[in-house]
């Protein structure tokens, strides 16, 4: 079962916690132990605001195992306002209405569950800004 693994991800999953490099001020999502820009090891947690813009979207109809219950869903790359690009599902939008360049904001949804006896993984999805 996926218990410790999903627990370890909760800060990023629920609050978009990434890292800020104290040396070069780079912002990175998800959390890192080493700065991808300068290689420094002095990083602090940084919660991203959750606003962003879609860079690309694709409507998934054949999903990997664990996600079939949600098809069809829109998968997207979302460029957060602070810079990093996140791969995530869209929510509260019909997949055929999802398109690149949409303003979106982070919400929390069920992402997957580990069978009927395992933990439920909650995490970020993105919904059109101002919805409803």
């Amino acid at each position: 079962m996926d218990i410790a693994r999903s627990w370890r991800q909760q800060d990023s999953n629920l609050r978009l916690v990434g890292s800020r490099c104290r040396v070069c001020e780079a912002l990175v999502f998800p959390q890192r132990l080493r700065c991808p820009s300068c290689g420094g090891a002095d990083l602090a947690d940084h919660a991203f605001q959750g606003g962003g813009t879609t860079v690309s979207v694709a409507t998934v109809r054949e999903a990997p195992r664990g996600f079939a219950g949600q098809v069809p869903y829109a998968a997207a790359l979302v460029r957060l306002d602070e810079g990093p690009v996140v791969a995530a599902m869209l929510a509260d939008v019909e997949p055929e209405e999802a398109c690149p360049g949409m303003r979106v904001s982070m919400i929390t949804r069920r992402i997957r569950q580990d069978g009927d006896d395992g933990p439920i993984v909650y995490g970020y999805k993105f919904a059109p800004e101002g919805s409803p």
Binding site: Q70, A91, D92, T108, R109, R110, I111, K125
Partner: peptide, 9 residues
């Protein structure tokens, strides 16, 4: 609720 929603969300 949608398939990804529950009481917690």
């Amino acid at each position: 609720p949608g398939p990804d929603e529950d009481t917690a969300t």
